[in-house]
Design a protein around this nucleic acid. Structure first.
Length: 142
DNA sequence: GCCAACGTTGGC
DNA sequence: GCCAACGTTGGC
């Protein structure tokens, strides 16, 4: 199983809305970046991800799970753009802020720091465990 | 609201 | 195929 990080501006799509979408989940639409799309192409059912609020909050607020493999993004006619479906799994009890991530030497290589603008990012198992620990989720959900 | 970083577009 | 111009993202 692989780990990921999904970025969203709370104004556009917040963690509350994601949770309200329930276990059926929602399409992660609107990605118009090849690298981000390729990350979604690599996702498997059951892969876990962090839900990160950009612009406002700047923190990891929840855990999500991939519940549908990549398929065409219904919000565009352009066949290049695809998306997966994700569903909320649980809150992160203590949201992990970008500041916290930057201040932690074990997370200095995290894409959140090094590839600031990438909206769908891979997360290593080590980073996953560390962010979960910081977020008050211990042991980390497998 | 500003601006740096970076991805994309388009002229050559 | 290069690279300058442009647009967008996202932290501050």
């Amino acid at each position: 199983m692989a780990f990921w990080l999904f970025k969203s501006e709370p104004d556009a799509w917040s963690w509350d809305k994601q949770k309200a979408a329930g276990t059926k989940g929602t399409e992660w639409t609107g990605v118009r970046n090849y690298l981000a799309r390729n990350n979604m192409r690599a996702m498997q059912i059951g892969d876990k991800g962090f839900f990160y609020h950009s612009n406002e909050g700047l923190e990891v607020v929840g855990i999500v799970e991939v519940c549908a493999l990549v398929h065409h993004d219904s919000t565009t006619d352009d066949p290049r753009w695809e998306c997966v479906d994700i569903r909320a799994v649980q809150d992160v009890p203590i949201p992990v802020t970008l500041k916290d991530v930057k201040a932690n030497p074990r997370l200095e290589k995290m894409a959140l720091v090094t590839s600031m603008r990438l909206s769908v990012q891979p997360v290593t198992p080590e980073e996953w465990k560390e962010v979960c620990r910081m977020g008050g989720l211990d042991p980390a959900p497998e």
